[in-house]
């Protein structure tokens, strides 16, 4: 059986998270084809619903990559994201899903190295946890 490669949806703010991902790639980091980056104006725009939908759509993990709390371009965006993150983690726990499947990273646009380190660690952790829905694994590759 092929090694399980976790599917991760990354919600990245356009000021910090997304540029950090771009920098990581420029520095030579090889992004797994199972990672999907979604650029959003600010992680404060993120909603619990989007995160749950990402899991429903087949993600094994979700990461939120936004600005450091004291350096959010929209001041309170990162704090709002923290609230949504905490709420979603609590929801996952209640419905029997490991809360470790969701991460929140604070990265500035120059932190390509930190971004790749965090993503690699997450991939490893998810690989150990296994797929969120094992029954769906066999259908992968169809989309």
């Amino acid at each position: 059986m092929a090694e399980f490669s976790p599917r991760i949806t990354l919600f990245c703010c356009e000021s910090c998270g997304f540029p950090a991902a771009e920098r990581a790639v420029k520095q030579g980091y090889s992004l797994s084809p199972e990672c999907r980056l979604i650029k959003i104006p600010c992680t404060g725009k993120l909603d619990v619903l989007y995160i749950l939908k990402a899991f429903e759509a087949g993600s094994d993990g979700v990461a939120i990559a936004g600005c450091p709390e004291d350096a959010c371009r929209y001041e309170t965006g990162s704090l709002r994201a923290k609230n949504k993150f905490d709420k979603t983690r609590a929801i996952l726990e209640k419905i029997g899903i490991e809360p470790e499947r969701i991460k929140r990273w604070q990265v500035s646009s120059s932190m390509g190295e930190k971004f790749s380190r965090l993503l690699s660690a997450m991939e490893e952790e998810l690989a150990n946890l296994g797929p969120l829905f094992p029954d769906r694994l066999k259908k992968r590759g169809d989309n």
Binding site: L49, L52, I91, K94, I95, G96, L132, F133
Partner: peptide, 13 residues
């Protein structure tokens, strides 16, 4: 919408 999503995920799990 959030509740519907929670239910789908919980039941599939």
């Amino acid at each position: 919408g959030i509740l519907a999503s929670m239910i789908r995920l919980a039941r599939e799990k």
